[in-house]
Design a protein around this nucleic acid. Structure first.
Lengths: 228, 228
DNA sequence: GAGATGCTTCGGTTAAGATCGAAGTATGAA
DNA sequence: TTCATACTTCGATCTTAACCGAAGCATCTC
């Protein structure tokens, strides 16, 4: 019965709590140093170093030396998707790491998922884009319509330019807190960075939370209204 | 940094080689007894029993007593999808459990993926359905067209009936051997069982391989032609 | 150069858990 | 009732690997 690829290796890599915490931290999309990841994993630097080299040879991480720092990132979007989908499964089975604390509501409201917006606001944005006819949805598949392309142009996003990249434009990503889809892909990334450039939202340091300014929140809710 | 669901638990469950083998065996879709799973994992019955109860309390498996047998199945399709996507990632990182053996080509040609057809033939079938306009594809999303509905009726599949179930009709599932999508969901299941009822194909015991009869293969290839 | 910072390697300890033998429980067959 | 089969529980062993202290290497600052 030795058939197919070896999932145990990958499972074991994710299966250690310290490594899982480091991977979850990297799901925030930022490149982090070994020292930062050691803190995220709650372990000393030596131990983290060993873990990181395992994760790298396992193909889940890539590193990039910059001066005396060593920055780690998830190897690619496929890894990020796997982590997120495991979070979804874990949440649905009730494997929670923590009792809902004060930080939790902010995280459920809006957070970074690799490089795009997730949480209540992420789900709302996609719902609104679909309802307004800017994005076509068939099952899990998403595509920008001609109408959507021109509307996104108004916000300041050049869809034609995004299309030329190798990365998929739209992708649906399952939200572990909302258990519904939000928008990933290069468009998801472009939208979030657009909000941050405009000063509508900013990232919290040391966390995946995304905080909207009062005015930014107003604009966002107006731009992406909900059907009632 | 204690945010979100605990992926380490699930990772650790999959991370043990014996458990991973048992889960992979269950990806074949059949309900298996503890004894069969012990063989699949290459361990004794006592050890398997301990593993199985862990997998069950972890929410990855469900069991059903029948006489003095105890049948185990993957808890739901979400688990099956996670396993398959981990296989995809593992394959793309070169984590292979075995040197390509004689059984391998058959497995790459056609195999069971939970309850639908995967491998070269599975990918071909979806490609052909899309090319003929029976299925619309946007990104990863799939939907049966009106034309497709009537064509499937001719084969003997009642799409309207499938639609009424809670399970999604079409879903794309990433093939680890082909690295392209094949058709899952209730329609994927219905198609495979249709082929088996007609005697076109049958399952190999103890394996995920699907073997086509000479005539069945001819019919299948005619029904799902490739663009050239 | 001297010193500080970021990270890796080495060595030894320790804890977790995978494993199996043996014995116990439940179900079915004779 | 008696025996066989399917599985679980208990107890003990043993391997794996996570962990940290200490020392070493590389890079930057001064």
């Amino acid at each position: 019965m030795k058939e197919g690829p070896d999932i145990a290796q990958i499972g074991a890599l994710i299966g250690d709590p310290a490594r899982a915490n480091m991977l979850a931290a990297l799901t925030g999309g930022r490149a982090l140093t070994a020292t930062e990841l050691a803190a995220a994993g709650g372990i000393t630097l030596q131990t983290a170093s060993a873990h990181l080299s395992k994760l790298e040879t396992g193909g889940l991480l890539t590193q990039r030396k910059q001066g005396r720092h060593r920055y780690f990132t998830l190897a690619d979007e496929a890894v990020a998707r796997l982590i997120e989908s495991m979070m979804g499964l874990a949440a649905s089975r009730g494997h929670l790491r923590h009792q809902p604390g004060p930080k939790d509501p902010a995280l459920r409201k809006a957070r970074i998922c690799y490089d795009h917006l997730a949480g209540d606001y992420g789900v709302r944005m996609l719902d609104s884009l679909v309802a307004s006819g800017s994005i076509d949805a068939i099952g899990d598949g998403l595509a920008v319509t001609a109408k959507g392309e021109s509307q996104l142009q108004c916000i300041g996003i050049d869809v034609g330019c995004l299309k030329s990249s190798r990365r998929p434009l739209c992708r649906s990503c399952l939200d572990w807190s909302e258990r519904r889809a939000h928008l990933a892909g290069s468009l998801g990334r472009a939208l979030l960075s657009n909000f941050m450039e405009k000063g509508w939202a900013r990232r919290m340091p040391e966390s995946r939370s995304v905080i909207f300014s009062p005015d930014g929140e107003r604009q966002f809710l107006k731009l992406f209204p909900l059907e009632s």
